[in-house]
Design a protein around this nucleic acid. Structure first.
Length: 592
RNA sequence: GCACCCAUAGCUCAGCUGGAUAGAGCAACGGUUUUCUAAACCGUAGGUCAUAGGUUCGAAUCCUAUUGGGUGUACCA
């Protein structure tokens, strides 16, 4: 049992014996003691004054006395205004080091027997990934990691949007203007090649619209009548009719894209247990429409289109099936949700999708719930803000995007440049150097994107490239390397001792207190699906360690007990940094 | 129009279910290296927590209104 729980329970008893009130545990709250006061744990006493009928100070003293008498670890207290600051004995914190923090399993929660699916990435196959996708991928991967240590069985899946008019546009443009260009012939990465023709399509399309407008058509007509668009639409129909030539082209070009994506995924360090392809799921959902009609959840209009009325839930009427009987986006998603559930029978399912689809998912989950799907309660949309440039929104067609591959290369290049500048790679082999640059560059990028609360939008300024100093990934990686270097010098292998008995320096105590918070940080991150908590926690920890490193000698400590303790403390810190960063998908080096 | 999200230091962000004098990083200025890695550490300066009300012993945090920004509201996905 943690000291916090012990204190909570004793406060309950104290209140009961002092004021004859039975207080539920949830009504008592503890907080960290602010740095400028003595103690580590603080109880706010204002809420108790209602029944103590005394001043906050007197109440604090009474409860403080009680706790000091009944809990051996509480060795002192002070009351300032309504705040009861408790001092917990150094031996308790030291014990935490050997009994908990240094345990290899520290931060790993017991299995909870539940399955959760995390669907993320979900790219379109007509263009390469950009910075927005990078945020999605890193978020999804990190949340999956967090849920996994929190005790879930996690299934990572990727629903690839591999069919539709957008792919046809790339295919058509390639057919018309591609001269049989292939990744092999041009040396262009497959997804970039396909993306290139997507842009070409758009350029030609715009020209045709202009031409039609010049000949007297209004914009809307021109958009419909442009020959290239009509051809693309025809291609989509041919695709749906299983036209062999179209299907072959589609397979070929998607193949290029997948090769390109898997390269990018590899660089990002993300992976999936299963891929779903929309070409295989887009016809799903019609059964659900029938089911909904039977149950009276949906209704049919005269033209044959099917709708759901959500006005009582504060939403609108929503179309779920077109008049011609074909699916819309939400029809597919209804079907796919059912399909995925039947595949895995998971308890929870998380969709990592941008916040522009908030409404869509609200409707989707509500419909499934109305259809009586019991598993609908476990569905969750992890909505994140878009990544904006100083110039505004990124738009693929207009070329105002930060390309994922380019950005990754740039980050690694910058890492290399900086590292060489600092002269830190003496004695590294070429392989080690390369690994290090990649680790640092990706660390900087990933940390930059994950330290911000998911739902907030993110500003990325390509001019001011991502930092390597201060509140950054490399700062934390550096701290880790520093620790490993000290440990290497001491030839540290494993925990040295556990029965240290001396007074801690205040940084040491702060460090221990911070280390003991790790599991609760994981819990908060898991419950809120927010890697940002972990990112900020690890930074706080690294900062504290650097302070300790500066203030207290480790290898040169005079007392061998103190030296050993500081080595154990350092090892514990490096281990928590390592684990925390791993949850963000960031690896940390032993030297840098 | 309606709905949802956001607003904290010059910039980028923390701030747990309401609790002490609102915290970091960057940028600015000053200091620290014959001692375990200076991608570090220490210090100075910088805030009417968008605005106005309300609830409360207590509000950046909860409620209402207003302003500003974003997104959605398609028989597109």
């Amino acid at each position: 049992m943690t000291i916090e729980n012990t204190i909570l329970q004793h406060i309950q008893k104290a209140v009961s014996s002092l004021y004859q009130i039975e207080l539920p545990l949830e009504q008592i709250s503890l907080q960290e003691t602010r740095k400028e006061f003595e103690g580590q744990i603080t109880v706010v006493t204002f809420p108790f004054t209602r029944f103590s009928k005394k001043t906050p100070e007197q109440t604090g003293v009474e409860i403080g006395e009680y706790l000091k008498q009944h809990i051996t670890e509480v060795i002192g207290f002070n009351v300032i205004k309504g705040f009861l600051n408790l001092s917990v004995s150094d031996s308790y914190w030291i014990e935490q080091l050997s009994h908990a923090i240094l345990n290899p399993q520290y931060g790993q929660f017991p299995l909870n027997g539940k399955k959760v699916m995390v669907e993320y990435s979900s790219p379109n196959t007509n263009k390469p990934l950009h910075l927005g996708h990078v945020r999605n991928n890193l978020l999804g991967y990190s949340v999956a990691e967090i849920l996994s240590v929190y005790g879930y069985e996690v299934i990572k899946v990727n629903l690839v949007n591999d069919r539709g008019i957008h792919i046809c546009k790339s295919m058509l443009a390639w057919q018309l203007f591609g001269n049989n260009e292939t990744p092999q012939s041009s040396g262009l990465k497959g997804d970039h090649l396909v993306g290139k023709y997507y842009v070409i399509f758009d350029q030609k399309y715009k020209k045709q619209i202009e031409a039609l407008k010049a000949s007297g058509q209004i914009e809307e007509e021109a958009k419909k009548n442009a020959a290239i668009m009509r051809q693309a639409q025809q291609m989509l129909l041919d695709w749906e009719a299983n036209d062999k030539e179209v299907k072959d082209l589609w397979k070929k070009m998607n193949g290029w894209v997948y090769t390109g994506f898997s390269e990018t995924y590899k660089k990002l360090g993300v992976d999936f247990e299963k891929f779903y392809y929309e070409s295989e799921t887009y016809l799903l959902g019609k059964d659900i429409i029938d089911e909904g009609l039977d149950k009276g959840v949906f209704f049919k209009k005269e033209d044959g289109s099917v709708w759901i009325d959500l006005t009582e839930d504060g939403l609108d009427q929503k179309l779920v099936l077109r008049a011609d009987g074909t699916s819309v986006y939400i029809t597919q998603d209804l079907g796919t949700a059912q399909f995925k559930y039947e595949d895995f029978k998971m308890d929870e399912s998380i969709y990592v999708v941008g916040n522009e689809q908030d409404y869509h998912f609200k409707v989707l989950f509500l419909i499934l719930d109305k259809l009586g799907k019991t598993w609908a309660k476990g569905l969750h949309h992890l909505s994140y803000g878009m990544v904006d440039l100083p110039s505004g929104k990124m738009k693929s067609r207009e070329g105002t995007v930060v390309d994922a591959d380019e950005l990754i290369d740039e980050m690694i290049y910058t890492a290399k440049h900086r590292t060489e500048e600092l002269g830190k790679v003496d004695g590294f082999s070429e392989d080690e150097k390369h690994n290090l640059y990649e680790m640092i560059g990706m660390g900087a990028l990933k940390y930059f994107l994950l330290k911000v609360e998911p739902k907030k939008r993110l500003l990325f300024d390509p001019q001011e490239s991502i930092d390597f100093q201060g509140h950054t990934g490399p700062f934390i990686q550096y701290t880790h390397a520093r620790i490993r270097s000290v440990l290497a010098k001491a030839n540290y292998k494993e925990q040295i001792a556990s029965d240290y008995k001396f007074d801690l320096a205040s940084v040491e105590r702060d460090l221990l207190v911070t280390l003991t918070k790790y599991p609760s940080i994981i819990e908060a991150s898991a419950k809120e699906y927010s890697p940002a908590h972990i990112a900020n926690y690890v930074f706080e920890l690294a900062k504290l360690y650097n302070k300790f490193y500066h203030e207290e000698p480790i290898l040169k400590a005079e007392d061998p007990n103190v030296k050993n303790f500081r080595l154990d403390l350092s090892a514990a810190t490096s281990s928590v940094i390592n684990k925390g960063m791993k949850l963000l998908g960031i690896t940390v080096p032993d030297r840098m």
